[in-house]
Each structure stands twice: as structure tokens, then as C-alpha cells.
Design a protein around this nucleic acid. Sequence first.
RNA 1: GGGCGGUUAGCUCAGCGGUUAGAGCAUCCGGUUUACACCCGGAAGGUCCUCCGUUCGAAUCGGAGAUCGCCCA
Length: 937
Amino acid sequence: MPREIPKAYEPQEIEERWAKAWFDEKLFRAENSADGPPFSIALPPPNVTGSIHVGHLLEHTQIDMLVRWHRMRGNRTLWLPGMDHAGIGTQYVVERELAKQNLRRQDLGREEFERRVWQWKGESGGQIKGQMIRLGASCDWTREHFTLEPKLYRAVLEAFLRLYREGLLYRGPYMVNWCPRCETAISDLEVVHIEQPGKLWHLRYPVSGSREFLIVATTRPETMLGDTAVAVHPDDERYQRYIGKSVVLPLMNREIPIIADTYVDREFGTGAVKITPAHDPNDFQIGKRHNLPEIDVMTDDGHMNAAAGKYAGSDRFDARKRIVSDLEALGLIDKIENITHAVGVCDRCKSEAEPRISIQWFMTMKPLADAATKAVLGGLIEVVPENQRTVLLNWYANIHDWCISRQLWWGHRIPIWHCECGEMVPALNSSVEIVDGHARAAAIPVKCPKCGGGKLTQDPDVLDTWFSSSLWPFSTLGWPDDTPDLRTYYPTSLLVSGYDILFLWDSRMIMMGLHLTKGAAPKDRVPFRRLYLHSLVRTAEGAKMSKTKGTGVDPLQLTQQYGTDALRYMLASMAAPGTDIILSEDRILGARAFANKIWNAARFLFVNLDKVEAAGLTSDPAAGLPAAREILTLDELAAPEIRANAPYPVPGEGALAHRWIYSRLAAVSQQASSALDGFRFHEACQSIYQFFWGDFCDWYIEWVKPQLTSSDRQVALAAWRNIFAALDAALRLLHPVMPFLTEELWHRLPQPAGARSIALEKFPEPQPRWIDTAADDSMAILQEIVVAARNIRAEMKLDPRKKVAADLFVTGPMRRTLVEENMDAVLRLASLSELRVTSGHPGAASEKNGGIVRSTAAFDLRIAYGEAIDKQAEIARLKKKVEELEKDIKSKQARLADQNFTSKAPEKIVDALRATLEERQLELKKLHDRLKQLDRD
RNA sequence: GGGCGGUUAGCUCAGCGGUUAGAGCAUCCGGUUUACACCCGGAAGGUCCUCCGUUCGAAUCGGAGAUCGCCCA
């Protein structure tokens, strides 16, 4: 029965089919009762608003490779997926939609707005899930979670209430970053600094009761309306006499004191600075020290408020212009400098963030950071690459309290009720109830424990998205309940994340995990035992891939073009830890070619087997097969139990290549596993690529081709069995990186009834019986001979189809036997009609115009051909080689002559150097002989 | 201002104390080898950014500088 296998590899149909099958069959469902040590990874939950970009694909490819690899090694493997509600991000997107209808969220009211967001989430959210399924992520979709679902809401309530009772959460008026567009506080980490051209205005503040001025510099003149002091350094001689006096704040005509504070940098500007405690974090601190009033001059949406006098109602940037021009009119602008400075903007909407005092919830971080530091220092979490460990520890060391409240409507509402008397009453417990399909706190306090009042209103704020994210590795496993999943899979084995969210997410999970989970020892409470920070995909200019900037590349489109496997391979092959990735068209093409190569190698085997079968059936002498030949069937050659016992000894002299390919298989399996264990995906890819294309296709298949159609049934049988088993092993090696292609091909091999997927098979382990260093060495020599012959042929510009005779001079009987035993393969691969093997060196045996010679220390190969060779070219080539060799030999001799080297370097190194020197000298001698001979001829 | 990373072949990148520094792509030469032209065979191509140091030995370790990029303040 012919096995239909298309000539060109067409990934689309294959990938869609398997993606669907894997999902429908729940193939990657983790079984708690299964054998094997658990291996668990929580997916960094993508924003529910998002669609996948190449950055995700890089992350998912790396996770998926590790997950598939572990699954194939027999681990009880769980990759837990889910989505993040992405508070500010999602709200921003929905608000943008509303704005198209000229609506603001305030127009709808909180409940209606929330309803709209849920509606939007239902329609557009979760796109990523479909994309991940299509791209082959082997997640356990039966365990999918969403940060706003009831179970996770409950975890958030539990965490909040516990931290609150422990006194780690507090509320009060502090300086925060405020986004006037989103109208919410944002954390330090959500403010990004962008270098921009700007101006530095030098303002003249008249000193009260004098004609003098103090000059202060500012990049934000509008904040002057809220100035409540001017500060100088206490030791600054220039200003001694002003300390204690006051200035008249221009435009506002308010007297404000001149104070002394060591915070002031005498070198900056004039050494006098305006102090606006309500609009600058440093000024806020100074204000506290000096008991200065805090005058907030702005509204939530970035307009000037009543405290701004006549500027009230103006947009903050309009106000800036007006103030500057008013000051100019009054002659109070000393000068204006053009500068570049970093402006903090809201990470989400890119509006300029405003430092501002507002009442917010904060989390005390110091004790948690200390515990986390201890865990990381104690090696309870291994950080890869290692330098990121220092970055993490430094961040913990300089940690600030975390502003966890957001003035948003989309998120986990803070479970605190405020009484009219000012008392704050937390929810009674963490239970949740479902209203309209969505969760909210159920245990609502009805009476104030302090004043007994019954008028309690819930805090309007919601929690920072990252609060719920920080619970992700355990909340998704059932925490705070003691569930089988939590017991089995927590701590998770590994977290794979981009280093861009090390502070936002990774660091906070470590703190929360250590603090909140139940394990007796810290090692049982860390959220993950290893932390691998992967690279980011960047544009050619080095910018982060970003959809908003239009630099994001749609991976699904690339998939259409090149195939998912190729894309995955390309990303993995570039994923060296610690270096960012710039997408390259060439690399994708190379990966696609690789996929095609794999496809065709498999195709070759199946197609040829068809031929062998057909020939056997018809006993067609034209096919070169004897009539008596028995039919070979695929089952006989490649049944699972047959493959399991490979390699089979090949009778006669054709065994070498088989011994060698299995030896290579052992080495490559070992390399791949150790590379994956160290997150060196590029290394794993490279060694598998080299194995498949170089060893398996270029040498092994080519070498054994004739055996596959051998008239000796035993030879053909063993050869086929070995090659199928090797292909099977190669597919399993390749599976973690190229899941679709390997799945498709694997199913074309005979499999036991009910076999579901290559993903559930074993990853190749190096078998001791495969390792064969003698075969490695022998094969290496034969390959060198073949390459030397091809080299000479190319040099002589021989027609590749033309077979010629050659002479081989070898030393040692072993080598001679080796070549003679493998003569057929060598002749065929080197396109030789004959190879005369002689012991010793050419020299005397050489004839006039003796063709071209290639020499290594082990052999000399000569092809003599009727026509004259380009003698000058050959001499030039030899001379260049001589030069290189002489240089090398000289440096080696010098080093060996150096007492310092021979006495201090390890013996092994010295001996090795001596041996290579000898080889080189032999090569050089051969080159000289050859040159002399050419000269003579 | 502080910290981190890059600088290696024309391009994209490996290698990170001890072979004549590698790969893929591009280039050049030769091929319709019935698995694959997304292929096969061959070749050419490098002051490993600069300087100083450590070492028997440095692309690899340390210091300084140049340059590009990232993060934090």
C-alpha cells in the first residue's frame, strides 16, 4: 500500500488539524495520579485585551519546549494557562471604544460601565487562547483561569484581608504618580521615563521687603502656583542672609518662606529651588520636614483647580503657557534654557504623569522584600541568567512601598467599608458571591464596630492588576484551599518570563508566595524554584516590539507564510539567554528549509519502502531485485517493538554507518537535554539541526542507500530497521521545538493501537549500547577521505558525473582495512571509479603530472586525471597553506620551548600541543614534498 | 547620576581561559544525482571595537576609553 506523502511540506493543514486534535482530546491535561515527579509552570497570563505578538510566541515556544521535553521524560507535567484582567489596560481600551461614541465612563456609571467591559471581554477577549492553541502551546486548558473569576477573586480577598490584619496595608495621603487621562494613581513601575526636548524656565521671585530676587529654575512652571517655600542649602554662603526671610510668590502674591534644607543641590541652577510639596516627590518630603502647607493646584483630569486662582479651569499645559507669558509680562523670567529631560508618562496611555498627593492604599514592602532577599540569597530560587539575580536583589534592597489602589472600575474592589465616623471596616471574610455572573465580596460588614453606625460604604477603589497577578502561581492551584493541585504542583518548578516584568511581577510573586502560602519551610513557599528570564524580541532599531507603535509583527501571519514549526525553530535557535533577539527574515527562511528537509527525509524512507515492496511483489528484475526476494513490510521494519531494539547488527561490511549514527544519536540526545536543562535553547537547536541535516541526511542516508535495496535480505532488513528507528528517535528529539511536523510524521510510522501522540512518547535518552567511539573515529577518517576527494574534483573542475580513479596512501594496517571494508560507500560518495589503497607515502610512486593531492596527517589522496591541472593555481594554494602552517608551527614551537609554559600548564595541554605540532609538521612536510614535485614536473 | 548588556565573516548570531575562532544566510565555482533547487558538492571570507593589565596562555578574566542599546533614579 503506497503511503501518500506530498512532495512539498505544507504546514497549514497539518498544523490546524493537530492543534485542534490536541485541544479536543485534552491531550495535555495533567493527571495528578500519574507517575513521575511533578513539573509545573504557570503561564504568564497575557492581557485579556491582547492578541498574540512575536514576544509572546518567543516566550511560549520556550515554555512549550521545556514542558514538552519534561512531559516526554516522564514528569507529571502541568502548564497552567490563563488570562489577566489587566485593569488599567482593559479599561483604557474600552474607554477608547466609548470615546468613539462620545461617551465617558462617568456617563454610564460604574455598574453599566463594568457590564460593558464584561461584554467586551466576552466578545474580544480570549483571542489569545485561540491563537495559543493554534500555535501548539501544550497547556492544560482544563485548568484555565482568569484573574477576575470568582475563585481568584476569593484568593485576592483572602490575601488582602490577611495583609490588612497584619498591618501591612495602610491608607493615607501620599505623593503618588497620577495619570490625568486614566484618572487614577499608578505605581512607580507604571511610569515610564521618556527623554524629550523641553525647557528650563528660570523664574525671578521677589524677596519681600527688598528689591532683590531669588532665581529658581523649573521645567513645570504651572506648579509654581502651589509653591509654599523656596529652599536653599544651609551652608550656601550666597544665601545665608535670606534664610528665614520670605519671597512674594508671583501671580499669587502669597508670601512664602525661604527655608534651608540639605536636600538642595548647590550646584544645580542658582542653588535656590522652589518647593511645591503637592506636586513633587522630593518637595513633598521637604514639606513634611518643614511643616509646609500642601497646595494641590490641579484636578483629577489635569486641569487647574480653584487653588490656581485665575488659572482655574485651564488645562495644565495651557496654564503653563499663560503663566509663562504673564511672568514674562511682569519681567519675572530670568531666562529660558532648552534642555532634554526625562518626562514620566503613563505606561498605558502615554499621558504625562503628574506627581500628586492623594489618598491611596499602600503595602508595606520592606519585611516581604527582606524575606524574598533571604530566599534568593539562600538559593531557594535559581535565577537565570545570573546577572539578573543582582538586579532583583538590588531592587529588593531599595524597595518602596507599593501603591496598590487604583481609581478604576475594572478590577478587584477593595474589601474595606468606610463608616461616617471615619472607621474602616474590612469584609468579614474572603467569601464571594456571584451577582450577574460575576463575583463580589459576600461577607459585607453592616455595622461599624467603633461607633455602631450602620451607614457603611465600600471603598470605591480597585486593586492594582499586579496585586492579583502576584498570587497567580498559587491562586490558580486553588489557594487558599488546600487542594490536591496545590499540594502536587506548588511550588511550581519554573517561571519563564521576560526580564521587563521582573519587578512588576516576578519579584512580587516571590514576596507574596513566601508570605502567604502555607509550607513549613521557605523552600516550600517560594512560587517557583527556578526563574528563567528570557530575551525580548526587538525591532532592528532595538525598540521593544509593541503593537501600539506598530512594530509588533503578527505571528499568525508569519505562521501562514512559513509554518509554526519553522517560526518556533527560528525563535528557539536565536534564544541565547541574556541577548535580545532581532527578527531576521533569513533565519525564518532557514528554519522553513529545515522543516522541509525533515519532511523530505521522512518522505524518502516511505517512498522507497513503497518501491521495495512493489519490487518484491512483482519480482521485477529491472528494479535490480532478485525474484526470490521476500517482501519487506513496514510493520516488519518499523513496528514499535522493532524500533525499541535498534540498532540491529548489519551483516557483512555495511555496519559502520549504523553504529556511527546511533553513537551520534546518543551524543546529541545528551547535548539536547543538557542544553534544555540550562535554558540554552539555541544550543539544543543547533545540535539537533546539525545531527539531522548533516549526520542523518547528508551522511547516514546517503551511505546506507544501497543497503536498503540490497539483495541480501538480512542486510536490507537490518538497514531498514535501523534507519526507521533512527528517524523515530530524531522525530522525538525534534518534537519539543517542532511539534506539528514531528507529530504528523510520527503517525505515519506504525504505532500501537491507541497511540495518541508523539508528545506522550519518550524523549531519546543516550543508551550506553549506542555509544561507539571506535565508530566515531573510523567514520571521521572516511568522511575526511570523501571530502578530500570531492575537494580535488571541484578543484580540477571535474564533471560531477564523471567517475575517476584515485590513489590513497595511508599509514597503518588498521586504516587500510577500514577503507577497504567501506570501499563501496567511499567510492560512491566521492564519485570515484576506483580507489587504490597503498601503505606509505606517495613521493616515489608519483608520476609525471600527478594530478592533485590532498594530504592530512593520516593520509594522502591523489587524483590523477588525463588533462593538465592548473599548476600555478595549485602551487599558489599550497604556498598559502604552507604559510599558514609555518606560522602555526612556529607559535607552537615557541610555546613548547618556553619553560614557563611547560612547567606551569597542565600536562594534558602540553601533551596535546606536542601531538598537534607533530601532525602539523607532518602535514607541512607533505606540502613541501608536493611543491618540490610540482616544481620538478 | 547609578546599574546592566552588546560591539566576532557582507548580514543575523554562536563561542566566554588552552585545536589552524564557528553556524545559518548572502557571495563565488560546479551540478536537472528521480527524498528535498526550501536541494547537492566545493570554495572564499575575520587586527574577535581600542588601549592597558592579570596569566605559561586572553575573543574569552580585570581596568580604562569609544560606541550602540536597555533598566533604575
